[in-house]
């Protein structure tokens, strides 16, 4: 019988805990930004602020070095890649909103 022990990661892995923390905060901010942004007449100003906060959290999360072997580390590296992709996309979206806002302001 082969017992595959799950990789147990305790408090000795602060990097992973920190990564998860920033992932969570980024997810919360960007989810809320998206919710506003997805509405046609959504509160774009608020969405811009939430995107900015989410982007900061993603940057903090990506900055964390994930060094280690095993399932949990593989998963953490995978998560880091996803966060990096979302950082680029969120930045693009933020730029679109900011540009749109500036154009609207100039027309007034």
């Amino acid at each position: 019988v082969v017992v595959r022990s799950a990789s147990i990661v305790g408090p000795g892995e602060p990097a992973l805990a920190k990564q998860k923390h920033h992932h969570r905060k980024a997810f919360e901010c960007i989810s809320r930004a998206l919710k506003l942004d997805e509405e046609d007449r959504g509160r774009k100003e608020q969405a811009i602020e939430l995107y900015k906060r989410g982007i900061e959290e993603l940057e903090k999360g990506i900055a964390i070095e994930i060094i280690g072997q095993g399932d949990v580390f593989d998963r953490a590296k995978h998560l880091k890649d996803k966060m990096r992709a979302n950082l680029a996309m969120a930045k693009d979206r933020l730029e679109v909103l900011v540009t749109g806002r500036n154009l609207a302001a100039r027309k007034k």
Binding site: A17, K20, M89
Partner: peptide, 20 residues
């Protein structure tokens, strides 16, 4: 738990899809 789970990955995927 306080580590990255497949749930976290799914959440990032959800953001990607909505941003796209």
């Amino acid at each position: 738990t306080s580590i990255a789970s497949s749930q976290s990955t799914k959440e990032q995927d959800e953001l990607s899809a909505r941003l796209a």
